[in-house]
């Protein structure tokens, strides 16, 4: 938080609830527990087209269409997803998009 710093235990709990309520969507950045492999919800475990399931065994939350988890695929994912990759080919693709909710129209088509 930029205006307050938590000092006691209760404040740390309040901070956690504030982050949950006001922070960016965190689900795709959640880490696996100790000894567990991290699979973001929305990523498939099985890459055979037509057979994709996610870590929960479902298909409803998979990362297609791309707007569902634009940033996770664009920024953090090494898998060649159907979005321009941030590392090599479309470094400034989302520069004009500070908030996906408001600025999604500014994310334009990329021609390789």
């Amino acid at each position: 938080m930029n205006s307050l710093k938590s000092i006691n235990r209760k404040a740390r709990r309040v901070e956690a609830s504030v982050i949950a309520a006001t922070g960016d969507v965190q689900a795709l950045q959640a880490r696996g527990g100790e000894g567990k492999i991290y699979y973001p919800m929305g990523c498939t475990l099985n890459f055979t087209p037509g057979w994709e399931v996610d870590v929960s065994g479902g298909t409803a939350g998979l990362c297609q269409p791309v707007e569902r988890d634009l940033f996770d695929c664009h920024l953090g994912c090494g898998w060649p997803a159907q979005v321009p990759d941030h590392l090599n080919n479309a470094v400034d693709w989302t520069d004009k998009c500070a908030s996906a909710a408001n600025d999604w129209r500014k994310v334009d088509i990329v021609f390789p």
Binding site: N2, S3, L4, K5, S6, I7, N8, K10, A11, R13, V14
Partner: peptide, 18 residues
Amino acid sequence: KFLYLVPSGAIFSLDKIG
């Protein structure tokens, strides 16, 4: 500068903007 919040009992220190 610190704040003791009532009724939560949380203690925060305040940054500049706070």
